[in-house]
Amino acid sequence: MTASSDPALSSGAVRVAIGTSTGARVSEHFGHATRFEIWEVGPAGSRFLETRNNRPACGSGCGDRAEAVMDASVALIADCKAVVVSRLGECAINRLTKLGILAFETDDTVDDTVRQLAAFDGLFTAEAVA
């Protein structure tokens, strides 16, 4: 899919962040992710919006700044309803949950992941909790 120049969400659609190093498969651990693909996902279909580069929190060599770097990673995707990565630690889950962001782990392809999310009714309800 190609990026759209119109960032407005379609009716009923939400933004989803996918941790992927290649764009083909969900491959990034949240704390190690160098980029997130942002997708608009809705019951009627999905489209790629943009890629957001990220400074990984884990192994970043930030020492006592690691908490701030993790917070920055979470803030980078704060406008998303969900994040999908290959692995996710408790620290990230807690931060995402506080913002109401659903968190999923998989190693599926990005295309399969987007299709599965579009079919998941819980993604589109206000009371969905991670």
Rank of each mutant, 00 (worst) to 15 (best):
A92N: 00
V69E: 15
A13R: 00
R95K: 15
V110E: 04
S27T: 02
G23H: 14
E50I: 00
T34N: 12
A17V: 09
A13P: 02
M1T: 07
A24V: 13
F30K: 05
D108A: 15
L99N: 11
A130P: 02
E127R: 14
A92E: 05
V83P: 03
A68L: 12
A3T: 15
V26D: 15
A13I: 03
F48T: 02
P56C: 07
R25S: 07
K81P: 03
V16H: 00
A78Q: 05
D71P: 08
D111F: 01
L88K: 09
F30V: 13
N53R: 15
I18N: 13
V14P: 00
A72H: 13
V26Y: 11
G45S: 01
F124C: 06
A103N: 01
T106C: 14
E50K: 02
T97M: 13
L99S: 11
D112N: 09
R65Y: 13
S86C: 03
L76T: 02
L102I: 14
D121W: 03
G63H: 08
E40L: 08
K98M: 09
D71A: 10
K98E: 08
R35N: 04
T34E: 06
E37W: 01
A57Q: 03
A92R: 02
A126K: 12
V114Y: 04
L117Y: 09
A82R: 07
R115V: 12
V110P: 01
E105S: 07
F48W: 15
S21R: 00
E37A: 04
L123R: 07
D64T: 05
V110A: 03
A118K: 05
L123V: 00
A3P: 06
T2I: 14
T20G: 03
T106L: 15
G23I: 14
M70N: 10
L99G: 05
V85W: 02
I18V: 12
L9S: 02
A82P: 00
Q116D: 14
R52E: 12
A68Y: 03
F120L: 10
C80D: 01
F104Y: 15
F104H: 11
I101V: 11
V129N: 02
N54V: 09
G42F: 13
C91V: 08
G100T: 10
N54K: 07
D79M: 05
Q116G: 09
Q116S: 14
I77K: 15
R95H: 04
L49S: 12
E67D: 02
V84R: 10
V84M: 08
P7A: 12
V84K: 10
L96S: 08
G19T: 00
G31R: 13
F104P: 09
I18T: 05
V114E: 01
T113D: 11
G45H: 13
V41T: 00
A72E: 03
M70F: 14
T34K: 02
A128K: 08
D121R: 01
R95I: 10
A130S: 06
C62I: 08
A24P: 07
G42R: 13
G89Q: 10
L99H: 07
D108M: 01
D79I: 11
G61D: 05
T109Q: 02
G45Q: 09
